Simulated scan of single mutants.
Amino acid sequence: MDADGVISTVREEQATELDRLGSEKALIAATGATLEADAVLEAAATREHALAAVLSDWGEETDGAVGGAFAGAADAAAARATTLDAPPGDPDAFGAHLGGLTGTPARVGAGLVAAPLVLDRFYLQVVSFFVNEANEARADLARELRTDASDLERARDVLGILAVEDREHARDAAVEAIGVAYAAYADTLADMGLDPKPIC
């Protein structure tokens, strides 16, 4: 399985979870039903700050091209957090999960594959929120952040230099990390009396 195969498999195996993570209920869960601009920006900043911190640590702990990829992804997440200009909250379940990972393949899968896929879905709703608010400047900003956050080129590059068995481990770690993000999302909505499944 090559790099694109890993990413495609993760998308296929977690298609339902990713779809629901990008539903109209995403910001309800992320903000505790506080659907206001400041709360939305804080939710985004929380995710970016947590991701930047974890990836930065991994970059310092890992040698070679993989360490460089972690460091580059950390810098990108930190730049997005700065652009958001909002105070972050405590790391969410996904961020906490990343912080507990050990081993390069697991970190590649969760941090460079799963994180962009999860952020892509999250920012989709951030864009929609600001469009509905008729705030085109912030909607455009959210689109730019989404494009940057969902970039999988680092993942492809790093997966390409891993051994086959390590790519498989990375795939499994990405699937697990998305599962953690979805479980937290579903549990949060359930606590609010909402069903995470879309209404048909």
Results as ranks from 00 to 15, higher is better:
Ser56Leu: 11
Gly99Ser: 04
Ala45Ser: 15
Pro91Asn: 02
Asp63Gly: 01
Gly67Leu: 00
Val54Glu: 14
Ala73Ile: 04
Ala71Gln: 13
Thr83Ala: 14
Ala53Met: 10
Ala43Phe: 07
Ala93Cys: 02
Ala93Arg: 09
Gly67Thr: 05
Ala65Leu: 14
Gly95Leu: 09
Ala76Ile: 07
Leu84Tyr: 01
Phe94Glu: 02
Ala73Ser: 13
Arg80Ala: 12
Asp85Ser: 11
Ala79Gln: 14
Gly64Ser: 03
Thr46Ser: 12
Asp75Trp: 01
Gly89Ser: 09
Arg47Val: 09
Ala39Tyr: 11
Glu60Phe: 10
Asp57Thr: 14
Gly89Glu: 11
Glu42Trp: 02
Ala71Ser: 14
Gly64Tyr: 10
Gly103Ser: 06
Phe70Ile: 11
Ala71Pro: 00
Gly100Asp: 12
Asp90Asn: 10
Leu51Ala: 15
Leu101Thr: 08
Glu60Arg: 13
Ala78Phe: 07
Val54Gln: 10
Gly103Glu: 01
Ala50Gln: 10
Ala39Gln: 05
Ala71Thr: 13
Leu41Ile: 00
Gly89Trp: 03
Ala81Leu: 05
Asp75Glu: 15
Gly67Met: 05
Pro88Asn: 11
Ala96Phe: 02
Ala39Lys: 10
Gly103His: 08
Ala81Phe: 00
Asp92Met: 04
Ala77Arg: 09
Asp90Gln: 12
Trp58Glu: 06
Val66Thr: 15
Gly100Met: 12
Asp90Ala: 15
Thr62Phe: 06
Ala43Asn: 08
Ala73Cys: 03
Thr83His: 03
Gly95Thr: 07
Asp75Ala: 15
Thr102Glu: 15
Asp85Thr: 07
Thr62Met: 06
Trp58Gly: 05
Phe94Trp: 02
Ala93Ile: 07
Val66Cys: 06
Phe94Thr: 00
Ala65Arg: 13
Ala73Phe: 08
Ala65Met: 09
Gly99Pro: 02
Ala39Asn: 07
Phe70Asp: 11
Glu48Gln: 15
Ala71Phe: 10
Arg80Asp: 03
Glu42Leu: 00
Gly103Lys: 08
Ala77Leu: 05
Asp85Trp: 08
Leu55Gln: 13
Leu98Asn: 06
Gly67Ala: 00
Asp90Cys: 02
Thr46Cys: 09
Val40Leu: 01
His49Thr: 14
Leu51Thr: 15
Leu51Arg: 13
Gly68Cys: 10
Glu42Asp: 12
Leu55Thr: 03
Gly100Ala: 10
Asp57Asn: 04
Pro91Ala: 01
